[in-house]
Amino acid sequence: MAVPVISRPRDTPFAQIGGAVALDLMNTMSERLSDDRVVEYLVDYGEVVRFAQQLGLIDDEQERAVRGLASRHPAEAIAEWSRVVELREALYAACYEGGPIDPVVQAHAEAVASGTLTRAGDGWEWDFPVDLALPRRRIALAAVELLLRDDLDRLAQCADADCGWVFLDTSPRHNRRWCVASDCGNRNRVREHYARVKRGEA
């Protein structure tokens, strides 16, 4: 039986604990490993835009432009939202479940085909049309950027049984256990302490 999905927009900024934009994208789903509920924060196209703006994938002017397009073309915006969620799940599967990278590569190829490389100071950057697909194209670039890193052996996942949030473990000893020490870390330390007390009483 499928695990129920609770759609709930975040009332705070999107978490940026992953160490890479594409990992923070995966963390727009919470309680991913739970048997009884999964929390979806990327609930609609508006939240996709908010994520892209907060993570620096689009600027404020582009954010206003794509929101205007979404209000005029709601069906197309819904389709774009669905594509972003599909890309997120394909990337998670590739990184953490041994899934194929083909869907991620295809999204990247589509993005590159729609853009142009332009001069930016001493380097180059991708320039894309400001349309409803802009956030997804920027996300696709970030996804492949993650896959091309040379430290993917540091990919890790929160040790909480339900959480499922992911990150690059850049700790000196490579022993980071929790997505957020003050959240999942504290909750599990309290749980473990309570279990020890109960065992002692027994």
Rank of each mutant, 00 (worst) to 15 (best):
108 H>G: 06
108 H>T: 12
108 H>W: 14
109 A>R: 11
110 E>I: 11
111 A>W: 08
113 A>R: 15
114 S>F: 05
116 T>D: 14
117 L>S: 12
119 R>P: 00
120 A>E: 12
121 G>V: 11
121 G>Q: 12
121 G>I: 10
122 D>H: 11
122 D>C: 02
122 D>V: 08
122 D>N: 13
125 E>F: 00
126 W>P: 00
126 W>E: 00
127 D>I: 04
129 P>S: 13
129 P>V: 15
129 P>Q: 07
129 P>T: 13
129 P>N: 13
133 A>Y: 01
135 P>A: 11
135 P>F: 10
135 P>K: 14
136 R>Y: 04
136 R>V: 05
137 R>D: 04
138 R>M: 10
138 R>H: 09
139 I>M: 12
140 A>G: 10
140 A>T: 10
140 A>R: 13
141 L>K: 01
142 A>K: 14
143 A>K: 07
143 A>P: 05
144 V>F: 09
145 E>S: 11
145 E>C: 02
147 L>V: 04
147 L>N: 03
147 L>P: 00
148 L>G: 04
148 L>W: 04
149 R>C: 05
149 R>P: 04
149 R>T: 05
149 R>D: 02
149 R>H: 05
149 R>Y: 04
150 D>T: 05
150 D>I: 01
151 D>K: 01
151 D>V: 03
153 D>H: 00
154 R>G: 04
154 R>H: 02
154 R>S: 06
156 A>Y: 03
157 Q>E: 11
158 C>Q: 03
158 C>N: 08
159 A>Q: 05
159 A>T: 04
159 A>F: 01
160 D>C: 09
160 D>I: 09
161 A>V: 11
161 A>C: 01
161 A>G: 03
162 D>M: 02
162 D>E: 08
162 D>A: 02
162 D>T: 06
162 D>P: 00
162 D>K: 10
163 C>A: 08
163 C>E: 03
163 C>F: 10
163 C>H: 03
164 G>E: 14
165 W>P: 07
165 W>C: 11
165 W>V: 05
166 V>K: 10
166 V>L: 04
167 F>R: 15
167 F>M: 09
168 L>H: 09
168 L>W: 05
168 L>A: 07
169 D>N: 07
169 D>V: 06
169 D>I: 06
170 T>I: 03
171 S>T: 09
172 P>K: 10
172 P>W: 10
174 H>E: 11
174 H>A: 10
175 N>G: 00
175 N>W: 00
175 N>Q: 01
175 N>D: 07
177 R>N: 13
177 R>V: 06
178 W>A: 01
178 W>P: 03
178 W>N: 05
178 W>I: 01
179 C>Q: 10
179 C>R: 14
179 C>M: 04
180 V>D: 14
181 A>K: 07
182 S>A: 15
183 D>Q: 15
184 C>I: 13
184 C>D: 09
184 C>T: 13
184 C>L: 10
185 G>E: 14
186 N>T: 14
186 N>Q: 12
186 N>P: 09
186 N>M: 12
186 N>E: 12
187 R>T: 07
187 R>Q: 07
187 R>S: 06
190 V>P: 01
191 R>S: 02
191 R>G: 00
192 E>V: 08
192 E>R: 15
193 H>W: 12
194 Y>S: 10
194 Y>H: 11
195 A>L: 14
195 A>K: 15
196 R>L: 09
198 K>M: 02
198 K>C: 01
198 K>E: 06
198 K>R: 12
199 R>S: 06
199 R>N: 07
200 G>T: 13
